[in-house]
């Protein structure tokens, strides 16, 4: 089974899109949480911190301001899972 999902990090001035994400770690208001495929549908508040995105072997990190995460997954595999992170500011961190 394909274990990837799509992720969009959207800010008012730019956005980042990924199609084959296996795992995302986000700074929730009550601590960091991870998202994998088939996560429950949820909407969560984010606080400022670091978002780590895992695509295959690669891991990309972003610093972000407070925002909202919208996790949209369908139990059937026909529609790919979608995770949307709305933050006011996000910047890719240098390795």
């Amino acid at each position: 089974m394909n274990k990837v999902f799509s992720l969009d990090i959207v800010t008012p001035t730019h956005s980042f899109s990924f199609d084959d994400v296996t795992y995302v770690k986000c700074p929730g208001t009550e601590g960091y949480f991870g998202i994998m495929k088939n996560h429950t549908n949820s909407i969560l508040n984010l606080k400022e911190g670091v978002i780590s995105v895992k695509t295959g072997e690669k891991e990309i990190k972003f610093s972000c301001s407070a925002g909202i995460a919208d996790i949209n997954s369908d139990s059937t595999d026909d529609i790919p899972d979608k995770v949307l992170l709305l933050v006011e500011n996000a910047q890719e961190l240098e390795k």
């Binding site: 208001t29 009550e30 429950t40 549908n41 949820s42 969560l44 508040n45 006011e88």
Partner: peptide
């Protein structure tokens, strides 16, 4: 209605509204 909201719906709306006004 089948969504999980954290911490709760009200505080999410409250944090979304200013964002909407700003954009």
């Amino acid at each position: 209605y089948n969504y999980d909201y954290e911490p709760n719906k009200e505080s999410i709306v409250k944090s979304l509204l200013p964002k909407h006004l700003k954009v």
